[in-house]
């Protein structure tokens, strides 16, 4: 059994590359689990998959000791895949059991699913880049592959486009995105997270990515997104979110702290020397932005209003 756990864990580590999104890596790992599996019952197979998911979640937590990475998208991607498996079973396996041909069919579909997930970033960019008009000033936050892809595609087709990025404390991810944009000739300014209010009146639109898209159409994203969204609303600046559909999670938080345990990772944040012991520091690395602040979500399913997200989720999980 430990042997099996090690294979899964290694496979997952191999799949995780900077260019692959966490959920896609997880889905590919799960396909590997099915391929290797010798289980002949569908129950057994599902149990095996669930175990693998648990393993990956644990691994994410142990690998980043300070919990700096959110596992929301990992869980949502895996849930989606599990749902996919059980739907497949309900449709085509029936009572007589799970044989080799079923397994092949399941693998085939799983691979297509992974393929589609991989191309979704391209689709989102194609959908969203038209929202960025010539000469607009875009305010974005942190480093999101999805939002960046969209901006790069917009930069290809537009004559002028200026981007302001927020530095994205604590890990300074804004600089990484700024470098990518400036390489293609987009005028980029990196601004302080705390200066978002100063810059909002100059912005024409805001685009961010998301760690997870929640059931009410809100998002969980890098800390600082929420204040940007609130300010955007105050200034009537449209606030767009670019996110793949495998990030749709079945969570319905009521406030910032109402996320499942372990889903709000802490960011490293040390008090300067000389601070009394009694002063506590706290720095979450993600925050929750509720649906009312979001204008539209660009997903591979189309440009959705926040209420459309809950619709999709209910349709998928509701008919069990």
């Amino acid at each position: 059994m430990d042997e099996g756990r090690k294979v899964i864990s290694d496979d997952f580590a191999r799949q995780l590359s900077p260019e692959t999104a966490l959920p896609v890596a997880a889905i590919k790992t799960l396909i590997g689990v099915i391929r290797r599996s010798t289980n002949t019952t569908i129950r057994g197979m599902e149990a095996e998959l669930k175990e693998a998911i648990q393993l990956m979640e644990d691994k994410m937590e142990t690998d980043s000791p300070d919990n700096s990475r959110s596992t929301i998208s990992l869980t949502s991607g895996c849930q989606l895949f599990l749902r996919h498996v059980s739907r497949f079973v309900a449709e085509s396996v029936g009572e007589e059991g799970f044989d080799e041909s079923c397994k092949q069919q399941l693998l085939h579909r799983g691979e297509r699913f992974a393929e589609v997930s991989e191309t979704s970033r391209e689709q989102i960019a194609r959908l969203g880049h038209n929202f960025v008009r010539d000469g607009t000033v875009v305010l974005t936050h942190g480093y999101s592959r999805c939002a960046l892809h969209l901006l790069l595609m917009a930069a290809e087709t537009k004559v002028t486009l200026a981007c302001s990025l927020r530095e994205g404390r604590p890990d300074g991810a804004g600089f990484k995105a700024a470098a990518a944009l400036s390489k293609v000739g987009v005028p980029v300014t990196v601004v302080l997270d705390s200066a978002v209010g100063y810059h909002m009146e100059m912005a024409d639109l805001c685009v961010t990515g998301a760690e997870g898209v929640l059931e009410n159409g809100g998002i969980v994203n890098k800390v600082g997104t929420f204040q940007m969204a609130v300010l955007a609303k105050a200034y009537n600046v449209p606030f767009y979110v670019a996110a793949e559909s495998y990030k749709f999670a079945r969570l319905f938080p009521l406030d910032q702290r109402d996320l499942p345990k372990g889903k709000i990772p802490r960011a490293p944040f040390a008090a300067p020397e000389g601070t009394p012991e009694s002063v506590a520091t706290f720095s979450p690395s993600v925050d929750y932005t509720s649906a009312e602040y979001i204008t539209l979500l660009f997903t591979d399913l189309g440009a959705l209003t926040p209420s459309a997200v809950s619709d999709e989720l209910i349709r998928l999980y509701g008919e069990a």
Partner: peptide, 15 residues
């Protein structure tokens, strides 16, 4: 919602 499936794309359809 159940009816809304239609011919458009959806998470459900993708699965």
């Amino acid at each position: 919602t159940a009816e809304g499936g239609g011919l458009g794309p959806s998470l459900t359809g993708m699965l």
